[in-house]
């Protein structure tokens, strides 16, 4: 449905591009998890899709049509639920929905029906007469989502929709997002919570420094289920230890931590026994399947971004 190809963008009066050569796709019925540290370029991509930024280089298309044309003719095909509470705090829940429904071109019975459906979807019926400013964090997030869904968009952009909400609201929101995709919408979901992405994303794109670092399904990105051992070892010199570990699989090291992706016939216990037999003192060891957080940290490195 959505295809971004070689998108590059540089903000005025900055030398470093915010995006360079970004390509990704989002399909109907799927949740695309968009991950990246602060300043990676996520917001710049969302700003392009919401129409706030014009394409400088590359292309963005919706079902083969340029984004600018789609936005001009049918802007409500794409909806954005920004990270901020993008509604009027002094208006009630239903007044907010009325206002944005009309702004999205809905009217008459259709408008009332969509307001009712979105209130029900976000389970906000009991709070219809409550002013936005008096809602809890979780309810505000749900109202933000309900407003985005009013015009029945085909592509929904959710920018960190669970920031500052309690676990119950988070579980509700994740379930709601999954439902949207199951109903046929294409969803792009950005978050810093890796477990959320793992829970709902069908595909994951990790970006950093304005570039796509990896793009694929979770299974593809997490190595197809191979076991990884992570450990720190004292008492054995680095060259000797690397040679030893390479007998068990692919070896990476990050500062003092060693990571070994075990080949098919090797086991973690055999690896640890071999290290100890070589005189190594194991300070800590973890093993199991790779997870998204490890992948994310490995790809984006650990340096602070803000």
């Amino acid at each position: 449905m959505l295809a971004i190809e070689n998108l590059a963008f540089c903000y005025p009066q900055t030398e470093k591009p915010a995006l360079s050569g970004v390509s990704l796709e989002a399909a109907r019925g799927q949740v695309l998890g968009l991950l990246g540290p602060n300043g990676a370029g996520k917001t710049t991509i969302i700003s392009h899709l919401s129409g706030a930024l014009q394409v400088q280089q590359g292309s963005i298309s919706i079902d083969g049509l340029p984004l600018a044309e789609v936005r001009r003719k049918t802007p409500t095909r794409i909806a954005v639920a920004p990270q901020e509470y993008a509604f009027y705090p002094m208006l009630t829940v239903s007044e907010n929905l009325e206002c944005f429904a009309s702004a999205g071109g809905l009217g008459g019975a259709r408008k009332q029906q969509r307001i009712k459906e979105c209130l029900a979807f976000a389970q906000l019926e009991r709070f219809a007469a409550t002013r936005g400013e008096r809602l809890s964090g979780g309810l505000k997030r749900r109202l933000n989502l309900a407003i985005a869904l009013l015009p029945e968009p085909e592509l929904i952009l959710l920018d960190e929709p669970t920031v500052g909400v309690d676990p119950q609201s988070r579980a509700f929101l994740l379930e709601a997002v999954k439902t949207l995709a199951n109903n046929g919408a294409a969803v792009i979901y950005t978050s810093h919570y890796m477990e959320e992405i793992e829970a709902i994303a069908d595909r994951v794109v990790i970006i950093d420094d304005g570039k796509v670092l990896c793009d694929g399904t979770l299974a593809e990105l997490l190595g197809g289920g191979e076991t990884q051992v992570r450990m720190a070892v004292d008492g054995v010199d680095e060259t000797r230890l690397r040679a030893l570990l390479e007998g068990f699989g692919k070896v990476d090291s990050l500062k003092a931590e060693w990571r070994v992706s075990l080949v098919q016939d090797k086991t973690a216990s055999a690896l640890l026994a071999a290290v100890e037999a070589a005189g190594g003192e194991i300070r800590y060891a973890e093993f199991g399947r790779n997870n998204l957080e490890h992948l994310f940290m490995a790809l984006t490195l650990r340096s602070l971004r803000d």
Partner: peptide, 17 residues
């Protein structure tokens, strides 16, 4: 300023207002 800062204005613009 309030509606600009909370993103409501950008939301209206993205809805094609």
């Amino acid at each position: 300023i309030q509606e600009r800062q909370c993103g409501a204005l950008a939301r209206l613009a993205s809805l094609g207002v």
